[in-house]
C-alpha cells in the first residue's frame, strides 16, 4: 500500500500504488490520504489507474477523504478500470465525483 504525490500547476496528483482498495486497507488508505492532502492545492486528482478492484469499504474511504478535503477544494478521480467504475456507477457515486478516463484527461480538463 502507498500513495505518492506530485504537484503540477494544474493540480496535486495523488497516485495509488495498491491493486485493491478494500476492507483490509480502507482505514490505512484514509489515513494516508489525510496526510497527503494536508496541502493548499485547490484541486486534487486521485489517479486510480493501478487499482484493479475496489469494494464498498474502499469507496467509503474515498468518500471520507473527499469530506476531509472539504468543499472549498475538489477531489477528482482518474483512470478508473471498468470494475472500479462500475462500483461508482452502481452506488451513484459517479454523480458525486468527476471521473476521468485517464490522468491526462483529468489534467487537460478545466478545474471547474
Amino acid at each position: 500500500m502507498g500513495l505518492t504525490s506530485t504537484t503540477t500547476d494544474a493540480a496535486q496528483i495523488i497516485t495509488v500504488h495498491s491493486e485493491r482498495i478494500d476492507a483490509a486497507i480502507a482505514i490505512q488508505f484514509k489515513e494516508d490520504m489525510r496526510r497527503e492532502t494536508e496541502t493548499d492545492a485547490a484541486r486534487i486528482v486521485l489517479d486510480l489507474a493501478g487499482v484493479e478492484f475496489i469494494d464498498s469499504s474502499g469507496l467509503g474511504a474515498i468518500v471520507a477523504s473527499m469530506k476531509q478535503i472539504g468543499s472549498e477544494r475538489r477531489l477528482d478521480l482518474a483512470g478508473l478500470q471498468p470494475v472500479v467504475e462500475k462500483v461508482f456507477r452502481l452506488t451513484r457515486m459517479d454523480t458525486v465525483f468527476r471521473l476521468f478516463d485517464s490522468l491526462d484527461d483529468a489534467l487537460s480538463a478545466k478545474a471547474d
Partner: peptide, 11 residues
C-alpha cells in the same frame, strides 16, 4: 452527509 457505507447488500 454523503454515505461512507451501507452499500454492501445493495450491491
Amino acid at each position: 452527509d454523503l454515505p461512507e457505507g451501507g452499500f454492501g447488500w445493495y450491491l
